[in-house]
Design a protein around this nucleic acid. Structure first.
Lengths: 335, 335
DNA sequence: TTGTACGCGTTATCAA
DNA sequence: TTGATAACGCGTACAA
């Protein structure tokens, strides 16, 4: 038998309804009464039973985070950001990490909704663009916020960075370094961010008056191995690129490995650029230039939008990115 | 208004209690009745409301995973392993990732228990050895399973690898490679695994008839930066080691960086060994020899023990490890 | 501003 | 082997 509202109400000498009012920050509670209740809550270490609240009320005080991303670092940062924001509201985060390409995605999410009655969901790529999921949520009237969505097709809020502009900036940085043949390694097709980054790459080339060479533009799978393969391909070309820009960190690391396998010196023989969450900061060799997206901030804002009042307007909240240039002081030493 | 047991009972022509019996796999249900109920459940896509089950019954069908680890990869693998096992039992995992050294650890865990009434908890290092936490759980009668605990001081089940034997094997591997001065970079004090790994290192030295040189034994913080610092220290010695064994992957990567900063060739000038979850496989340069602990397997088994019947005996379940030697074919090319 | 009575959807108890 | 009914702990509606 654990502490209940009843115990608190007895301790404070008020009705259970009054305790409930205080817990939910409702109006029409006398200051003195409120303080007495709060004292009783503290004294008894009372914490409301989530199941009972959920069953009786309209809210469950739980939100779900649906994460299907190849990078554990990304998933972790998302969880931390969402959790930070939830704590402030006394809401619990239910994290649902997925291994890539789960077949039962729709069923799983439906199950989550039915069994837990979450107050809302946060969706990350590529699920945030999964038409079936979006339809189901809309039809069921479940609130959701999307992180880094492709297009704004649904009446839901979202958080994002300007991937196209970021890729443009990165490519511009390489161009400014004198590179003219710049390879690109894209990510998976179902990730909208991959396409956005490719557009930015093409933007910068066009702005510099350079024709895009299709042979320099490859598809990867957002994994280390796919980056290594694409890098090896690009570097095996007769007229090989002097710089390679990969759509995420892991593939950039793969490109670095491919370069090392060929005995290339960095950055003299090849400049490598990546795009991501800075998971590999420090692990891979400099020089590696990256666009860093602040995943935790994206997550925090997503939760912030999700926890907003029902009548809050739909909002697309943008977050900044950084161009991080790592010095190449050490790589020459090994060369 | 969503589907409830009442709807199912009407559809199947039985009482709600009978439906409940089928859902909970209770005995004393006629085969025909059971099948009719199951058909109705499927037809109506019924999924029981977790809040109601939790409120009415003795179980909440939820378990908590308390993870405070510097490596996002470790946290992710733990979550996937636990989740896999939970799914089979229709139990939900509530993941609680922590940033290092949260002050409110005890309160947070107590809050989790009070609000969600979890059926049990899985604790990872260093929390699995946190005396205050263990006491609270025991006092409250909350089931828990520990992953990689220090000593078996509590009457709870646990999963682990033999860290001491693993470190002994790794050090033996280095000794077999002809190394006589082998540096060690330990992890944080509150991680029992760190001490276990140090003992294994010392075991192997002693078995080889070598005196342990305290100057070769450093303390790190399980982070990349601490590994880089300890590595730089060790390599600055007049009589520097020819091999360095770090108590985890991230520190090993730091040691690698320190070596590169000094222009050392690997593995000719220095052999680097790590211990961990293989998070960095492919990211850092070979050659790096590691002990790989199967985190997902540890997690799966922890959940398996937690979900066992109440009267199941306390069990300490051991899982194997791998010694992974990466070839050094590429590093010479860059040297 | 406060309190009373009812119901949320499921499991537990006990009777049939 | 089944069913009726009372909890579970809280929020809601409405009355005071």
């Amino acid at each position: 038998m654990r502490t209940t509202i009843k115990d608190v109400s007895r301790e404070a000498g008020v009705s259970i309804k009054t305790v409930s009012r205080v817990l939910n920050n409702e109006r029409y509670v006398g200051t003195a009464t409120r303080e007495r209740v709060q004292a009783a809550v503290a004294a008894l270490h009372f914490r409301p039973n989530l199941a009972a609240r959920s069953l009786a009320g309209r809210r469950s005080f739980q939100i779900g985070l649906i994460c299907d991303n190849p990078s554990p670092y990304y998933v972790y940062e998302m969880q931390m950001g969402v959790r930070d924001r939830c704590e402030a509201d006394g809401v619990r985060m239910i994290a649902q990490p997925y291994d890539r390409g789960s077949e039962r995605l729709l069923d799983d999410i439906a199950g989550l909704i039915d069994t837990t009655r979450v107050d809302g969901l946060i969706l990350t790529p590529p699920i945030c663009d999964h038409v079936g999921v979006l339809e189901m949520l809309t039809q069921r009237g479940v609130r959701f916020v999307r992180v880094s969505p492709g297009a704004v097709t649904s009446p839901a809020s979202s958080t994002f960075i300007d991937n196209r502009a970021a890729a443009r900036a990165m490519t511009g940085h390489l161009l400014a370094g004198g590179h003219r043949r710049i390879g690109f390694v894209g990510g998976l097709r179902d990730y909208a961010t991959s396409a956005q980054r490719r557009l930015g790459y093409q933007d910068a080339l066009a702005a510099a008056g350079l024709a895009a060479d299709p042979a320099l533009d490859r598809d990867g799978g957002y994994t280390f191995a796919s980056g290594a393969a694409a890098g090896a391909d690009l570097l095996a070309m007769r007229d090989r690129p002097s710089a390679i820009f990969a759509a995420n960190d892991e593939m950039a690391a793969g490109v670095l490995t491919a370069a090392h396998r060929l005995g290339l010196r960095l950055p003299q023989d090849l400049a490598v650029a990546g795009f991501g969450d800075d998971a590999l900061a420090g692990y891979v060799w400099p020089p590696l230039t990256t666009i860093r997206q602040p995943v935790r901030l994206l997550a925090w804002n997503a939760a912030d939008l999700l926890l907003a009042p029902d009548d809050a307007p739909v909002e697309a909240r943008e977050v900044g990115f950084d161009l991080v240039v790592r010095e190449s002081t050490t790589s020459e030493a090994t060369a």
